[in-house]
Amino acid sequence: MNRALIRLAALGAVVALGGAACSSDSEDAAVGDPAATVAADCDNIGDPNVVTVYSGRSEKLVKPLLDQIDESVLGPGISVEVFYDQKPVKILEEGPRSPADVWFGQDAGELGALAKHGYLGQLPDSVTGLVPASYVDPDKRWTATTLRSRVLAYDPAQVPEAELPAGIDALVDNAAPGTIGYAPTNASWKSFVTALRVLRGEDGAREWLTKFKEAEPTEFANNGAVLDAVDQGQVKFGLINHYYWFQRTASVGAENVKANIHYFKGDTEPGALVNIAAAGILNCSNSAEAAGKLVQFLLSEESQQYFADQTGEYPVIEGVQSKHALPALTELDPPTIDLNQLESLEATEALLRETGLLE
C-alpha cells in the first residue's frame, strides 16, 4: 500500500461551479493561490460554538458514530451539526460564505475538488501525525479515514469459482447480455472509469467501455441494489465495493447470502482500484480548532474500530482488527496509480456519454 494510492484527486465536473463562487478578479488570483483567494473572501458566518459537518457519507453508515461526538470531544460548550448525503458542489456554490467546518467524503475526488479550488485549510499535525504519510494529502489538506477496494460480486450458482474472470477484460469478453450489474451514477463507478482512462488512455478505455456497453449491463441505483440482484440471481456479476458484501453477511449471516465476491489483482488492473473515504477542514471554518478535534476523533481507535466492524472498511491506523474476515491490505494487489491523476471526471463523463453509458 506504499503506492501513493490516496493522493489528491480533483473532481473536474465541478470546476465551473468552483469558479462561479468567486469574482472574476478572484478567479485570476486563484490561478496562483486559490486557498489564499478563498481565505481573503471568508465571511466567517458559522457559529464558533458549533462544528458544522457536510457529510458525503450516508446517514445510515456513519450517523451512529457521529452521534457520539459531544463536548468531551470538541470542548466545553461546543456542539456538532451534521448534514448527510451532501455533494461537494454545495460548498462550491456557497463559496466563502459556506457555514461548513468539515467535509467528510466518500471519495478521493470530493476532497480533491475542494482542495483544488482552495476550500480546504491545512490539518494540524495532531491529526496528520496519526496516519501514515501515504494516506495524507502532501499539503495536509485532507486525511484518509478508511480504505475500500473494488470487487466483483458473483452468483456461485451461475458462475463456478474456477470460471471467474481474471480481470475486467475477461469479464466483458463474450459476456451474455444483461448478466453484469452496475450503478452508473455511483461515485465509485466513475472513479473506476477514470482509473481505467489513466491506466489505458482514452482509446483503451473507450474500447473496454464499448465492449461493456455491448454486454448490455443492467443498471441499478446503487451498490446495495447491485448486490441484491446478484444475490437473487438476477445477474451473474456485479461491480461494487467490498464492504457492501461484508455488511450484508454480518447483518443476515453468511449462510443467508448466496452472492460471493472476487478480488481482481494486478499492477495495471483497473478493477482492483483501492479508494478512500477522507475528511478535511474548510478554509473558512469559524471553528477550526474544534473541527480539528472532530477529524482527530474519526481517526481514534474507537472510530477506526467502528469503521472496521460496522462499515466493513479498512482502517488507516495500525493495530485495529476487524470482526470481518477481510483480506489483509498486503494481500490486495491494486494498480500502481497516483490518484492525483484522477482529476478528469469531466472527461470521464464525456467518454461515458460517448459510449452510451451515461445520458
Rank of each mutant, 00 (worst) to 15 (best):
A4H: 01
A9E: 10
L17V: 06
A20G: 09
C22S: 14
E27F: 13
D28S: 12
A30E: 06
G32W: 08
D41F: 04
D43H: 07
D47W: 01
D47F: 02
P48G: 04
V51Q: 04
T52D: 13
Y54S: 14
Y54E: 06
R57H: 11
S58I: 06
L65N: 02
L66F: 14
L66V: 09
D67Q: 14
Q68A: 15
D70T: 05
S72F: 06
P76E: 05
P76M: 09
V80W: 03
V80I: 15
V82A: 00
V89F: 07
L92V: 10
R97N: 13
R97L: 08
D101M: 04
V102H: 01
Q106P: 12
G109Y: 02
L111M: 11
G112H: 00
P124Q: 06
G129T: 07
V131K: 02
S134C: 12
Y135V: 08
D137G: 10
A144E: 12
T145P: 02
R148S: 14
S149W: 01
Y154V: 05
P156S: 06
E161M: 13
A162F: 07
P165L: 08
A166H: 12
A170N: 04
A170D: 15
L171N: 09
V172Q: 05
D173G: 12
D173F: 08
N174L: 08
I180V: 15
Y182F: 15
T185G: 14
A187C: 06
S188W: 05
F192L: 14
V193L: 02
R197C: 06
E202A: 11
A205F: 10
E207L: 11
L209R: 02
K211S: 15
K211M: 13
F212K: 00
E214A: 15
E216R: 11
P217M: 01
T218E: 13
T218K: 13
A221Y: 13
G224W: 04
G224R: 03
L227R: 01
D231G: 04
D231K: 03
Q234E: 13
V235P: 00
V235F: 01
K236P: 00
G238C: 05
G238V: 03
G238I: 04
I240R: 03
H242W: 01
W245M: 07
W245G: 00
Q247P: 09
Q247H: 05
A254M: 03
E255P: 08
F264W: 10
K265A: 15
G266H: 06
A272F: 04
I276L: 12
A279H: 05
G280I: 02
S287G: 05
E289Y: 05
E289I: 14
L294V: 07
Q296W: 06
L298R: 01
L298W: 00
S300L: 15
E302Q: 14
E302Y: 10
E302F: 13
Q305N: 12
Y306D: 07
Y306P: 06
Q310H: 07
G312C: 07
E313D: 14
G319W: 05
Q321H: 15
S322M: 04
S322T: 12
L326P: 00
A328Y: 04
L332Y: 01
D333K: 08
D333I: 02
I337Q: 01
D338Y: 00
N340G: 15
L342K: 00
S344H: 12
E349Y: 04
E349H: 04
R353M: 14
E354K: 10
